[in-house]
Design a protein around this nucleic acid. Sequence first.
DNA 1: AGCAAGATTAGC
DNA 2: CTAATCTTGCTA
Length: 199
Amino acid sequence: MILEKSFYEGRTESVAKRLLGTYLVHNSPGGTTVGRVVETEAYLFSGDPACHAHKGMTKRNRAMFGPSGTSYIYLIYGMYYCFNVVTAAEGVGEAVLIRALEPVEGIDLMIERRGGRPDLKNLCSGPGKLVMAMGMDARLDGQSLASKRLQLLSREAFAPRFATSKRPKVTTTTRIGINKGAELPLRFYLTGNEFVSRK
DNA sequence: AGCAAGATTAGC
DNA sequence: CTAATCTTGCTA
């Protein structure tokens, strides 16, 4: 099932944890790819200087102020894109960065898009890598995650083998690659998962 | 108008 | 460890 509005209710930190184990689906003209979310980071409007929305709305972060369940995609270092899920109500400005996926479907296509290296653990183990493997780009910025093109599905919807497991065990750490707000414990990943960007 | 920094990655 | 590469946002 596509995630409903109620899924995004609560603090963004909580939603960031809740997003672990959900499935991201991208239906592109080239084919469909699916990845299981295994690593996330929360970015808060208040008290978090690393958050793009921290100083208010700009041309780049406009999508962050959209309703929960909106995609926020931006260009980083002039050459990679990062994909976020807006997790707060419209006008608030908070999001969760998806940092790693476990490849589930369309793996051949992912390998092709990532330069042909058939290394599953290296396919989506980073925010830039997973956007590349999934075939996403800036055109998806601001789009709903309940659309034909792009969807976020519940844990139960995909792979029954995970449906029986209760709440997955989650490890909390500080976020990666930031200078401001680096001490905040806002990075979450499935404990022991092999597909995270970094342990 | 000019410039430094950035939620990264691949390659040496 | 560093280059690649470019947009944003701040300073002048």
